[in-house]
């Protein structure tokens, strides 16, 4: 089971730096567990975006998911997060 290619995840470092980049106050810090949880949340966000876009492409009988499929699901996606 664990011999297969590793699960796709956002790196802890990347998420940590990304968060601190957007903080207005440079005194704000993030706990380690919070960073891991944020990585999980971003993973869900991307997977949800990809799946909804794929569903939209399916509804339009297209084999490739194009930007217009993603554009159509974008408003609802942003409302759900």
């Amino acid at each position: 089971m664990d011999d297969r290619e590793p699960e796709v995840v956002f790196k802890k470092e990347t998420v940590g730096k990304l968060l601190s980049l957007s903080f207005r106050d440079e005194k704000t810090k993030v706990s380690g567990d919070a960073v891991l949880l944020m990585a999980e949340m971003l993973k869900i966000f991307v997977q949800e975006a990809a799946r909804r876009a794929a569903k939209q492409a399916d509804a339009e009988d297209s084999d490739t998911v194009d930007i217009d499929h993603f554009e159509k699901i974008l408003p609802q996606l942003l409302l759900d997060f």
Partner: peptide, 20 residues
């Protein structure tokens, strides 16, 4: 069983960045 176009992937990335 779908393929993602480069533009679609770029759009999802940009959205993720903004959402973050």
């Amino acid at each position: 069983q779908k393929k993602y176009s480069k533009l679609a992937i770029a759009a999802i990335s940009e959205t993720t960045f903004k959402q973050c």
